[in-house]
Design a protein around this nucleic acid. Structure first.
Lengths: 222, 222
DNA sequence: GCAAAAGTGTTCCAGATACACCCATGT
DNA sequence: ACATGGGTGTATCTGGAACACTTTTGC
């Protein structure tokens, strides 16, 4: 089967930068490329958009197929189209930015990836294509959105403590945050509520557990 | 000549939403489609990306070819790819957001557009394809960026007065702005300087003229 | 001299920041 | 009992919002 056009057409792919918190660090999900080009190198999960498929659907599908992961939050990031970014043919990549709560990190490697793994953003391997640039753009988006949206909750498990949430902010911004001011600000948003439970952990006072009131909502604040 | 691929490829276009201030109103540049589909309807300037052409280059080129306009400021907006957005074939449109200072609005209609015109965003004609949605996204981007960047200066002529600048903000946000607070805030940015000249206009005190210190720079503020 | 719009400074309020002590737990 | 980290409130600072009168011009 082949497809013929009067003018040359680029290929269109989607690539997904999906972040999670693992072991107190911000991680990103990568796959090891099974095929040339860049065979054996790590890359963002992604692939070709099907001809009748919505872009966001393609992003969610590729992520699921290649890694077994269902993104909790998915938004379009940027479209990368440098003419030489893929050695095979002209490929335009519509990239997505995704987050997943840290209690849903199961990975299932799939057929077209030799390996799948979470990597701390602080120590990434060399990446195929222009994926380092994509990842950098995604990380900047994440950092910016922490400030003016409630996106951070998309990284949290069903219940979490204030110190855990604060730690997520600290890991992403790489800045220390005062716990009193932080708690005041977060509670002031009115988007989380105490579960009434506590979390005992280590030789110190237990922390109160909270849950997000409306999981699906990402508010823009201020 | 024809081009054949093993898998179906979508077509990729760029479309540009370019804004300017004309007659004290925010305007957008549209072209009247010469060919089907949507023949005779108004649409955003745009067209197919050439196979070896950078996306931003394609946006600037189509804008120039179809309207004669050189955008002063151009940034990628969003990529629209609903499978049925074009009746001919699958078309993915990488859209751009552009601004042009109000002293460079010359339009030169080109071969593949019966007409080209500036339209106030407050009274737009019906638009072809999903261009109304694109325009809406672009307008929201413009409004948002007024608040946290110095993008508004990209709409201003080489020299302008404080009331003129304030009027641009008012036209876009549709809110009245206090002139004392506005002037304080803008001057505090440190990105404009007085020319020393004044603009006499009407039966009232003349307004001081200002110019942008670094025309090419769009700062993120705060 | 009158109408019209430009220039200019101070007070007030809200949200952000800085900061320290007590509490519940595990060992 | 002590070490560890969690919980909590107040004073201060800073940036934004509200607000009115004088100045310069054209007619």
């Amino acid at each position: 089967m082949s497809y013929t056009y009067e003018y040359p057409h680029p290929a269109v792919t989607v690539d997904v930068a999906i972040f999670s918190i693992r072991h107190d660090a911000l991680n990103v999900l990568l796959i090891k490329r099974a095929l040339a080009p860049y065979q054996g190198e790590w890359a963002l999960p992604g692939g070709f958009v099907e001809i009748d498929e919505a872009l966001e659907h393609a992003a969610a599908r590729e992520l699921k197929e290649e890694t077994g992961v269902d993104a909790g939050y998915l938004e379009q990031l940027y479209t990368f189209g440098r003419p030489d970014r893929d050695p095979r043919e002209r490929v335009i990549s519509v990239t997505y930015f995704a987050l997943i709560p840290s209690d849903r990190l199961e990975i299932r490697a799939a057929s077209d990836a030799e390996g799948v793994g979470w990597f701390p953003v602080a120590s990434l391997p060399e990446l195929a294509f222009d994926h380092a640039e994509i990842l950098d753009t995604a990380f900047e988006r994440l950092k910016a959105k922490l400030d003016y949206s409630t996106i951070a909750f998309q990284l949290m498990p069903a219940t979490f403590t204030m110190p855990e949430l604060r730690h997520v902010y600290e890991v992403i911004t790489r800045e220390e945050i005062d716990k009193r001011n932080f708690s005041k600000k977060i509670l002031g948003l009115g988007v989380i509520e105490p579960t009434g439970e506590e979390k005992r952990e280590g030789a110190h006072r237990p922390a109160k557990l909270y849950r997000v009131i409306d999981r699906s909502k990402v508010d823009v604040i201020k």
